[in-house]
Design a binder for these strands. Structure first.
Length: 99
DNA sequence: GTAAGGGCAATTA
DNA sequence: TTAATTGCCCTTA
């Protein structure tokens, strides 16, 4: 069980239409300061299909980056019912998922 | 085994 | 309030 594996499992707990942040995710797996590591894990994401890495955003509600393009990310989020405006989530506090 | 970087966060000015 | 700097953890080279 590696760190990345935990991150993936946690991320899979995020329901459709909800999002989480790198910080929350890091804290959820035991590394409250491991947000950067998570970002890297997402980038090297070995399971891009089963891991909804597009549901992970920055703590301030912005989409942040995305290995396959931010526009794709925001589009997928919008497809799940999350409103995106100018690169950031409008109802971030509501759509946000707490582990 | 060492070094650098990454889809950030929290702090400070 | 926005911008810049520092720090943290993990993976990859």
């Amino acid at each position: 069980m590696t760190f990345s594996t935990k991150v993936y499992r946690k991320l899979l707990q995020v329901p459709k239409g909800k999002v989480t942040t790198y910080g929350e995710l890091a804290k959820a797996v035991g590394s409250k300061n491991g947000q950067r590591a998570i970002g890297m894990i997402m980038k090297k994401n070995p399971f891009p299909v089963i891991v909804p890495c597009h549901r992970v955003v920055k703590s301030d509600g912005k989409i942040g980056g995305y290995a396959y393009g931010e526009k794709i990310k925001s589009r997928m989020l919008a497809n799940e019912g999350i409103k995106i405006k100018d690169g950031k989530i409008i109802d971030f506090d509501k759509e946000r998922f707490y582990f």
